[in-house]
Amino acid sequence: MNNPYLANESYDSYRSVDLEAKAATASPYELVLVLFDGLLDELARTRGHIEAKRYQEKGRSLEKCMNIINGLNSALDYDNGGEVVQGLSRLYDYCIYRLSDVSVSLSLEGLEEVVHLLGVIREGWDGVNAQRR
């Protein structure tokens, strides 16, 4: 495949099928981990788009990232989660704010800050999932 667009399209198609297969058999905690893995992968793609000056693709990647974060935020149990849920919600809001800034400033440091924060949250979810098994 010499056409990079077709190669990327094929990879995206594979990822979509793989994600659907994982989601179909996942527990709620595993589903959150699948979302975080997809989010962290997309953030890595965003970095590549910024570095390669592919600004249109960067915009699409950031939009995907913000949609996933908004989905994670909206799935929080605000009625029963207490302070932990409130803290997570504030952190998700902060990540969206930083990604909005990255979209304009193209700051790789801002992007890495979000990657780090979301990586820590993902580790926490992984720990919760491990305790439930």
Rank of each mutant, 00 (worst) to 15 (best):
M1N: 04
L6K: 10
A7E: 15
A7C: 06
N8T: 13
E9F: 02
E9Q: 11
S10W: 02
Y11C: 01
S13F: 11
Y14S: 01
R15P: 01
S16R: 08
D18F: 13
D18H: 13
L19E: 08
L19D: 11
A23D: 08
A26F: 14
S27V: 03
E30Y: 05
L31S: 04
F36D: 11
D37N: 14
L39H: 07
D41Y: 09
L43N: 05
L43Y: 09
L43C: 08
A44D: 15
A44K: 14
R45H: 10
T46I: 06
R47G: 05
R47Q: 13
G48C: 04
I50V: 15
E51Q: 15
Y55R: 11
Y55L: 15
K58T: 03
G59P: 04
G59L: 06
R60G: 02
E63K: 13
N70V: 07
S74M: 10
L76T: 11
L76H: 05
N80M: 01
N80S: 03
G81L: 11
V84T: 08
V85G: 00
C95A: 14
C95M: 02
I96E: 08
I96Q: 02
Y97K: 06
L99K: 00
L99D: 13
S100C: 10
D101V: 12
S103G: 15
L106C: 10
E109G: 10
G110Q: 05
L118E: 01
L118K: 02
G119A: 11
V120W: 00
I121C: 11
N129D: 14
R132L: 10
